[in-house]
Amino acid sequence: MLKYKMHKVKAICLTLSLPLILSGCNHSAIEVRDRAFVQAIGIDGEKNPSVVVSIFGNDSDEYTVYSGEGKTIFEAIADAETKQDKNLFIGHIELIALGKRNLLDDLEILLSNSRISPSCTVVYSDVNAGEIIADKNSWNLLETIKIKSKNGYISEKSVANVLDDLLGSDKAAAIPIVEIDQINMAIVGENGLKGILTETEAQGLAWLSETIKNLTLPIELENETVNLRVESAKSRVTSTIDGNKVTTTFHITLSGDVLEKNYTLEQISEPAQQTIISLCQAAVQRTVHSLNVDVLNIEKSIKVADYNYYMEHKDNWNHMLKNINFKYEVDLLK
């Protein structure tokens, strides 16, 4: 009887304590309808940041934007929050546009404590990032970036990708740049924009960055141009060290088919390889030789090849980068 009474007492205590830990009974919980989910954010201001946030609407054509200023990014977001009647939630941000600011510091702060997703897309603006978010439908902008990346015109970059590049020895990263009417690829460093790639160089970068999902590649033959429909493409980079000579090889493997029925894959294989190699050479020439940056994981491949060699020469990284020999191997699978 006593045991039964004790069980009852325990059950009552447990039942009474449950409401204390159930979040639904927490008076400070915020209902979903009282939250405004930020879809995109633009950050400008070299000293004091100003932000423009774009809120998810009911469909892709509906969006509202609010702006804010502050001494820090989060104070600016809080300022933007006061312009409307809901709590801003940044955990589902899909697009970040960064202006002329220290990208490394900004991305580190945004990523701290997992406030935003590391796979959030990042773009750069050399003019005004907030205007991009305010003027353009950020949903459409994001979709455009994804499609252009899939088709090899640019390389879509996430917060994690850009931060990983910026933490390398040369503190530079490749990032899509949104200009007034177009989206290109840019190389940014600690001190801002280093250069904008041409269409050819950006395509070469896309091949080397493994962002291509499917595209139609025109192949110049002797008498005509045929189309190679690329269905998938993979790339990897390896380095070998022989004495003081570093050779970095880019390996690209792709599968696809010829759109023109009167040609076979074997017939266009060599011209296709040449076309892809020339695109890659343009990207390497511009990034490595002209801008002297590594956005192609060359540094990592050298570390893997010979860690001790890398550690001996890492203080002279810029010089090492300029003297690397590059090779290209393109395999076209059936």
């Binding site: 580190e108 990523l111 701290s112 997992s114 590391p118 994690a160 931060l163 990983d164 933490l167 990592k300």
Partner: peptide
């Protein structure tokens, strides 16, 4: 997955 970002991470499992 994290590469260079590991140096910024406080609690690796959650990150």
């Amino acid at each position: 997955v994290t590469g260079h970002l590991m140096q910024l991470i406080e609690f690796p499992f959650f990150e």
